[in-house]
Amino acid sequence: MLRRALTNQITRQQFRFYRVNRSNTVINFVPQQEAWVVERFGKFHCVLDPGISVLFPIVDKIAYAHNLKEVAQDIPSQTAVTMDNVTVSMDGVLFYRVVDPYKASYGVENYGYAMQQLAQTTMRAEIGHLPLDRIFSERAQLNAKIVQVINDSTVKAWGIESLRYEILEKGDIHLPQSVMQAMQGQATAERKKRASILESEGERQGAINLAQGQRESIILKSEAEKMEQINKAVGEAEAIKAKATAVAQSIQMISEAIKHENAQKAISLLVADKYMDAFSNLAQKGTTLMLPTSVHDPSSMIAQAINIFDTLTTKRKDMKSIEASNEDKKPEPEK
């Protein structure tokens, strides 16, 4: 208890420079970023702003001189228990400034020491509301929450505004050895889990890429076969068309040749030649044949073919003659 009392007394002495008595020299010069609180007959009179001011001697007293600059206050390391019952040791720094010199003078005895104690208790309380994992991951939210809680208590009552609170980067959070080992094991398990997930994702993506490649290959192959069939069909159609055109032209030429004299003999010879070719092809391709009686005599076969052609020609001429006579016998229309 004696050691704690001595420590508190020394700490209070360290903050005495925030409120320093100034001598009244009648004509007083207030430095920039300072505010002097003047008492007259022991009672608050006014606050002197930076510049020149005239005060009455003896009756006016400069009771407090406040520094209006931003002040960085170290927060000593302290032990706290998290929500999941883990003991941690943390230290930080608090940044604040005086916004109301009157309240800073008469609202609190020593606002520097009071701000330090309030920051410690607030940090201990806020750590108790969070599990250990969130303390590491939500440090910014923790700092903002501490500043908010401090301002709710100090701005209106003491005239002190907390600007920000920061947990120190070096040696800021101290954990027991058993907790450190447990956290390392947890981190190792998490890394293994992520590695297995990444490996499975890679295999899955590889299978998908392979399936897509096979699918595209099949599609391209089918498209190629389709184009091949289309080109083949177009080629066959063109060939049939060309063949039909050639046959039509040959028929036209034959019909033109029939009109000439002595064409019948040439045609008879052509028919006989085609008859022999057809019979020859039939003998090569078929297995069952119906042969004419004169197969041993090709000359008689040719004569037979010519006789058939002549008979057809004669019948054709007779049909044309009958048609012509019928046309002549039609009665003329009455005039």
Rank of each mutant, 00 (worst) to 15 (best):
Q120F: 04
N24F: 04
M115A: 08
S299H: 12
L118T: 05
D328F: 05
Q284E: 10
E138H: 14
F95E: 05
E138L: 12
I254Y: 14
L220R: 15
G107F: 00
K170E: 15
R191I: 15
N151Y: 02
R139N: 07
E34V: 07
K61F: 06
S321F: 06
Q14Y: 10
V38L: 01
K315P: 00
Q32L: 14
Q177T: 11
A157H: 07
S222K: 15
N281M: 10
A239E: 11
V37A: 01
I10E: 09
N85V: 09
A283D: 04
A266L: 14
T188S: 15
G42Q: 01
A157V: 10
E126L: 15
P57G: 09
A80N: 00
S105V: 00
M227I: 12
A63N: 04
G213P: 03
Q78E: 06
I302Y: 05
A305H: 02
K335W: 06
I62W: 01
A305Y: 00
L312R: 09
S299Q: 15
K265L: 12
L269P: 01
R194P: 07
A272C: 01
P31V: 05
R204Q: 13
E190F: 08
Y275R: 02
A257H: 10
K317I: 09
L132G: 05
R124I: 14
K330R: 04
F15M: 03
D49W: 04
K330H: 00
A283M: 11
L6W: 09
E34A: 08
E138R: 14
F309C: 08
L198F: 15
H174I: 13
Q177A: 15
E228K: 09
Q205W: 04
M183W: 07
I167D: 02
R97C: 06
A189D: 12
V26H: 13
Q14I: 10
L163M: 11
Q177H: 11
A244Y: 08
E161F: 05
V155M: 04
Q304W: 06
P298N: 05
S325D: 04
E39I: 03
E138G: 13
K285I: 10
A283Y: 05
N151S: 03
E169W: 08
D74P: 08
E70R: 07
L2R: 11
R139K: 14
M180W: 08
A65E: 06
I160G: 00
R16H: 13
G171R: 10
E190I: 08
A157L: 10
V26K: 13
I173K: 05
Y275A: 06
V108S: 00
N151F: 01
H296T: 12
F15A: 02
A305V: 02
A195Y: 13
N24E: 04
M83D: 06
P76N: 02
Q212S: 08
